[in-house]
């Protein structure tokens, strides 16, 4: 049912946990499937002075696909500029995981939504 990459990400998920004093937090829950995802981001700057996602952590309550997509979204977003991170799509995550079963595609949705929400949260807090 699951690709090797999904199982690998599930067995050894990356960036699990939370960031104390995070700059942005994105909380997403899907009551139908029961999955819940919280993404924490810490913002820094690269050499060009652009804002980047310096650190990212995720907490997940969910199935194998939910845990694997959580891990993958953090891998894809870490070190990216905010502009780049906003462009990550659910398809990017599914592709990086070498595909998801059709019924589990919503898990990659959740992961992207949580990431975007965390960025939004950061931007809102820093609007002047």
């Amino acid at each position: 049912m699951y690709s090797k990459k999904v199982m690998e990400s599930f067995k050894h998920p990356h960036n699990m946990g939370e960031i104390k004093n995070a700059d942005g937090i994105g909380k997403i829950g899907n009551p139908t499937c029961g999955d819940v995802m919280w993404i924490f981001i810490k913002i820094g700057k690269n050499k060009k002075g652009e804002e980047i996602i310096k650190d990212i952590k995720v907490k997940t309550f969910g199935c194998v696909a939910a845990i694997a997509t959580s891990s993958m979204v953090t891998d894809l977003a870490k070190g990216k500029t905010i502009k780049e991170a906003k462009k990550i799509t659910r398809q990017n995550i599914a592709d990086a995981l070498e595909g998801l079963p059709p019924i589990k595609m919503h898990c990659s949705n959740l992961a992207v939504d949580a990431l975007h929400k965390a960025i939004e949260d950061y931007e809102k807090k820093n609007e002047k």
Partner: peptide, 8 residues
């Protein structure tokens, strides 16, 4: 925790 993840 979610059942499927514990199952696997």
């Amino acid at each position: 925790i979610e059942g499927e993840s514990l199952l696997l």
